[in-house]
């Protein structure tokens, strides 16, 4: 218990001193992850779409050659950027470009470098996800679109990609959450993200574990919020689960409004409830009648007996 109290006190101490730098770190991390994921998705979609352009033997040979070349380039891009650590890609781009070009080509800001690295890294992963998303859409959708005369581009933009996007939403969410966490490696090029706030804080205070606790809680909060938001977005994309009937058709308007001549009679065979209640009603009436008859008979009897009495007296 003691230790927890100590931890709490240390965290409060850290927060009062470095709270602002933690918060700006969170802001930078979120912006970088979001921008990187969005641009990465755009790259992924472009690669995925280029990768799935159909070729037929009837196409012009130049077109087929060009598409083949594009596929090879995308393949190389995906394999290289998916197969190397992002931290090294950052170093290669940020320090490698000035090294080879004698400082003539370099990133003007660490932000630009970080966004480029995160984007192309995400793009490499997304390219395959988008390709999978496009393949997973039922081929019948493509045929339906082609049969009404849509070109490949029209089919893609209005039928296939909207469905593919929905299918890969969980993948996009995955990538965003991974980016929130993995942008922590950008400290290597001096990017001021959430993790670099930790490095700055412990460098001055030596409170390693309390600061790491702050980081843990911070990252977990960000990712939990992100996955909550993504779930909500997916629901939103699915649209309403119900729909409204639009009654413009005169024929369908009459459905249910026709009154059957037999309605609510014992001959009404559509409605067992009505039949039952009619039968019950009939039975009740019969019992009433019977009792009335019996009552009448009793009165008659009484009258008779009284009459005989009278007769007897007379």
């Amino acid at each position: 218990m003691n230790k927890f109290a100590q931890l709490g006190a240390d965290i409060v101490k850290l927060w009062t001193k470095y709270g602002a730098s933690y918060l700006s770190g969170i802001e930078n991390t979120l912006i970088l992850a979001l921008v990187g994921t969005v641009i990465g998705c755009v790259i992924g979609f472009v690669c995925g779409v280029l990768n799935t352009i159909p070729t037929s033997p009837n196409d012009h040979p130049l077109k087929r050659f060009f598409l083949g070349l594009v596929r090879v380039i995308i393949r190389l891009y995906v394999e290289i950027f998916r197969g190397t650590p992002m931290v090294l890609q950052a170093v290669f781009l940020y320090y490698g470009l000035p090294y080879f070009s004698n400082n003539s080509v370099k990133f003007s800001s660490v932000w630009a470098a970080a966004i480029v690295v995160v984007s192309i890294n995400t793009g490499a992963y997304m390219a395959e996800s988008v390709r999978g998303g496009i393949i997973s859409v039922d081929p019948g959708q493509t045929e339906g679109a082609k049969a009404i005369g849509m070109t490949h581009v029209q089919t893609m933009t209005s039928v296939i990609l909207p469905q593919a996007l929905r299918n890969i939403m969980p993948q996009i969410g995955n990538n965003f959450i991974i980016n929130v966490k993995d942008t922590s490696v950008m400290f290597i090029i001096g990017f001021p993200d959430f993790f670099s706030a930790h490095r700055a804080a412990v460098g001055a205070s030596y409170l390693y574990f309390p600061s790491a606790t702050v980081e843990m809680i911070g990252y977990l909060t960000m990712t939990l919020l992100a996955s909550f938001l993504l779930r909500w977005m997916e629901k939103k994309m699915d649209g309403s689960s119900s729909y409204e009937l639009v009654q413009t058709d005169q024929l369908t308007m009459t459905a249910g409004t026709y009154s059957y001549p037999d309605s609510h009679s014992p001959f009404d065979e559509r409605n067992p409830e009505a039949v039952k209640s009619m039968q019950r009603e009939k039975l009740r009436r019969q019992i009433e009648q019977d009792t009335a008859v019996r009552e009448g008979q009793r009165i008659d009897q009484r009258r008779e007996s009284r009459g005989s009495k009278h007769g007897g007296e007379n």
């Binding site: 339906g144 082609k146 009404i148 005369g149 849509m150 929905r166």
Partner: peptide, 25 residues
């Protein structure tokens, strides 16, 4: 023939499929 504009031709020849193929989106 190679020069045929297939989409334009298909617009004149409608097709109804066994599995409907309505656009799900």
């Amino acid at each position: 023939t190679r020069g045929t504009n297939a989409p334009a031709y298909r617009a004149h020849v409608g097709m109804v499929f066994q599995s409907f193929n309505l656009f799900n989106n």
